[in-house]
Design a protein around this nucleic acid. Structure first.
Lengths: 218, 218
DNA sequence: TTTTATTTTTAGCTTAGACTAAAAATAAAA
DNA sequence: TTTTATTTTTAGTCTAAGCTAAAAATAAAA
């Protein structure tokens, strides 16, 4: 059984490895966890002893297979709880992250299996992120960023990259949610901004907006 | 916001105060929390500083109004989660305690209010214990112990005093659960044992069984 | 009312996890 | 290839919460 602090480190390292690939630096971990590099070094050395990750001084860390499974399980719990909060308790998708951060650390395999079943074995969380199975396997759907679409292309919103409240509220205001169809009417090469169509509305979005929205094209 | 350890102390002290009334001793707290008296002294002094309880050296402690409210809120969360686990996730009533012990420490008022609503604002948990409202008020129903009933009296099971797995499994085996009607057919003065009727079955129970079952008489 | 037993507290130590400041290693620039 | 800047680690503190062993207070027994 891993402590709350350990689980959070493992989860963060997992996510960083997804983005950056290969070895993850001490500083990167410290930044993502809002802690100091020296604290990271301590914890990372402890996790290395426990064979949850491999650590080479000054070179960064990489999760072992065991580490990856632990991370996937925490993520599985987080995302299942998010589904619960949105589907059953009618929370809004931009309100659930913090609560799920707490719920993800409740230890009980039976609980999470029953929750999974209760929710109808969902494959994606309310932000469109995939929910791994109990062994830590993700089904990966190939999704693009909206910013990668060209003029006249269209697709369906399947998730977000950025999950800040500000961003999610922006999407809300524009009536963009999981499943919303989006068409690119025009695209400016200079700054990557776009004119898009959502429902009956057409409006301008900046590149920053476009590169944080995942789209599944038909 | 209180730490997990603090919340557990507050909850334990609350329960002990219910049973013992008035001041609760250091030793009693230590025993109920499976910790050492010296650790209890430390924590109790800290909680006294925070005005959660009043503490007189060598004399024991008593929760303040603030302490009582905190305790009631933790208990409210515990019991609501138990209802969720049994009603929604189909856990058995003897399997939910440990999981609820973890869930009760998730901090979010909004969460617990929505959960309450989702569950249909239940008044009792799966063991028949009352669920306090958000302000910490319990509705108290006057319930008796089965052992207090006389020959030929009968009533409905509304809860248990003892919550060990062994006891709950015994009740299960005998098909006694919340709502089960029980009639006392005979009672032995010498040892407090009884012959009771449950459904179509009649059987013998010891005083130990009888004095841990709460009954509501008509 | 002494003496003895029990309970409670204090003092000092331990561990997990975080922090600061300084030292060491690596990477970037001149 | 030195020098400079950046990153990472080490060493030493700090806090929360626990523990043991000894001291102090209270309660029980003689």
């Amino acid at each position: 059984m891993y402590s709350l602090a350990e689980e959070n480190y493992i989860k963060s390292i997992y996510h960083l490895q997804q983005e950056a690939g290969k070895e993850v630096s001490t500083n990167a971990i410290a930044e993502s966890m809002e802690t100091k590099p020296s604290s990271v070094t301590d914890m990372v050395q402890k996790l290395a002893e426990k064979k949850i990750l491999s650590y080479r001084k000054y070179k960064g860390v990489q999760l072992t297979e065991e580490g990856r499974i632990i991370a996937a399980n925490v993520i599985r719990k987080h995302r299942l709880w998010e589904v619960f909060l949105v589907d059953k308790l009618k929370f809004h998708w931009d309100e659930v992250h913090e609560i799920a951060e707490q719920l993800e650390h409740v230890h009980s395999e039976e609980l999470i299996n029953r929750l999974d079943k209760f929710l109808g074995n969902p494959a994606f969380d309310p932000h469109g992120d995939p929910i791994p199975d109990a062994k830590g396997n993700f089904k990966n759907t190939e999704k693009k960023l909206l910013s990668e679409l060209k003029k006249k292309q269209s697709g369906v919103c399947v998730g977000v990259k950025e999950t800040s409240t500000e961003y999610l509220q922006y999407l809300d205001k524009k009536k963009i949610t999981i499943g919303t169809k989006i068409s690119v009417l025009g695209k400016e090469f200079f700054d990557g901004s776009m004119i898009i169509q959502v429902g009956r509305d057409q409006f301008f979005i900046s590149q920053k907006i476009a590169e944080n929205l995942y789209i599944q094209t038909a």
